[in-house]
Design a protein around this nucleic acid. Structure first.
Length: 424
RNA sequence: GGAGAGGUGGCAGAGUGGUAAUGCAGCAGCCUGCUAAGCUGUCAUCCUUUUGGAUGCCCGGGUUCGAAUCCCGGUCUCUCCGCCA
């Protein structure tokens, strides 16, 4: 959430940012924010004045009673009833304005970083890096869902039976490969300085709001009605919320955490051929990295995260590219996002396996996540996160790209984790 | 699930109707010949921004001229009992 003060003082910058996101009614939105803010401030001033007056009288009454001047005290007391009424109306006015403002602010996305390119959709994303050669498979090459069936690695049917579409069951070496990847990712992340944490997979409303998953994207999260909890769509939500409401010391920064969790997404309305197999699921596993940074070096941190994810994909020897998301594609809360896509050779398409973002103060403002800076003032920290990495599409990529006539070859770095070299 | 106790600033910790003590840490300044001590201010948020004012004691209501303090509802934590992986 942007700070009103920021919008007030950087109106043009905000408008430019919203334009980059192709928000057509940006001017109208901002005008409404500013006018509501004005109402809010005005009613606050009025309320403050009336309250000051009534406080003064209250004090007087107290003193009069103390000195035994009961009659005088009663007289003054009569005066206060009018003020009380005024106070009530003004306070209602103020609260209404505050609530309206809050709702308006909830609807305004983060301002994209200056390096974010203009664009409408994912087609306008800017490729900034490409690595590895796409393997050329022969005619008999199979997509991963066929391979999964052939080698008994994943059963989509079983998942459908137990739960529904999009909830696969991993079996035998498929399950083992999955676990190997999780351990491998966690090891890479902890070696790079991220502290491993295990967090709840259900979160409350406040946590959802804190990271920006609520209130706008309720449709993406599964909601547990009876207890009013949400299944996490990503570890980002519980992990970042560890620090909700914290006032950190400057020397505590940066904080770096990693966590493995399953992720639950409703993905309402997305069906069809390109969501086959592991391409898009309602439940999947992911290892996430999260950082809390000093604003001065959050973009440096973002670069470090990019390099880190890059290194992992290079080790796995999967062909990949990095995209800088354009204004039309960058997510609501993010200022700058880089997507990593691997090339899935049998499907002949790119699959997103990681998304690394800097949210600047957008989340920390909601979270009230601050630190005491050098001059003793509290200041909002920057939050960042990224996948390192999402499992299913990595599995898809390995199955497809590493398929041979003998079977599926396990990438070398994973062999210590799987305990086998070949799936046949 | 039942019973009891409790939730106060970054932290510690007073305050049981008269408007948030005190200590530690932090920040700024002053002073002082020794990595220290002392003094002053600052030290939650918002508005005005110059003096100032308002709000804020887990959340939401209520009583009162006035609520951290009293009443009602909720929530979380701790202790005990019960149940249990």
């Amino acid at each position: 959430m942007l700070q009103v003060q920021f919008i007030r003082e950087h109106k043009d910058e905000v408008l430019e940012g919203l334009k980059k996101r192709n928000i057509s009614n940006a001017e109208e939105m901002i005008e409404r924010v500013l006018s509501t803010d004005e109402v809010r401030r005005k009613s606050q001033v009025e309320l403050d004045n009336v309250s000051a007056e009534s406080n003064k009288l209250s004090k007087e009454i107290g003193l009069l009673f103390k000195s035994g001047e009961v009659r005088k005290a009663t007289l003054v007391r009569e005066k206060t009833s009018q003020l009380k009424e005024q106070k009530e109306t003004l306070s209602k006015q103020k609260i209404t304005a505050e609530k309206t403002l809050q709702q308006l602010l909830f609807q305004i996305p983060n301002i994209p970083h200056q390096s974010v390119p203009y664009g409408q959709s994912d087609e306008d994303n800017e490729e900034i890096f490409r690595c590895g050669t796409n393997p050329t498979l022969d005619e008999s090459a199979l997509p991963h869902w066929e391979l999964a069936k052939k080698y008994n690695l994943i059963s989509f049917e079983l998942g459908t039976k137990i739960t529904g579409a999009g909830f696969p069951v991993y079996t035998g070496k498929g399950a083992k490969l999955q676990r190997a990847l999780i351990n491998y990712f966690l090891d890479k992340n902890t070696t790079a300085g991220y502290e491993e944490v295990q967090v709840p997979h259900l979160v409350n409303e406040a946590s959802g709001i804190g990271t920006g998953s609520l209130p706008d994207k309720e449709r993406q999260m599964y909601h547990i009605e009876g207890d009013d909890l949400y299944l996490i769509p990503t570890a980002e939500v519980p992990v970042t919320n560890i620090f909700r409401g914290n006032l950190l010391k400057e020397k505590d920064l940066p904080l770096a955490l990693t966590s493995y969790t399953p992720c639950f997404r409703r993905e309402a309305g997305s069906y069809g051929a390109h969501v086959r197999g592991l391409n898009r699921l309602h439940q999947f596993d992911k290892v996430e990295i999260v950082r809390i940074e000093h604003p001065n070096r959050s973009y440096e941190a973002l670069e470090e995260m990019i390099e880190h994810v890059k290194k992992i994909l290079l080790e796995l020897k999967l062909p990949f590219r990095i995209l800088r998301l354009c204004g039309g594609d960058v997510t609501f809360a993010s200022a700058l996002t880089y997507d990593f896509e691997i090339f899935s050779a049998a499907q002949k398409r790119w699959l997103e396996v990681s998304s690394v973002s800097n949210f600047e103060t957008f989340q920390s403002n909601r979270l009230k996540l601050r630190f005491k800076n050098g001059s003793g003032k509290s200041q909002l920290a920057h939050t960042l996160n990224g996948s390192a990495l999402a499992l299913p599409r990595i599995v898809a990529g390995i199955l497809e790209n590493y398929q041979t006539t003998k079977g599926i070859v396990i990438p070398e770095v994973l062999i210590p984790y799987t305990g086998f070299e070949l799936i046949s």
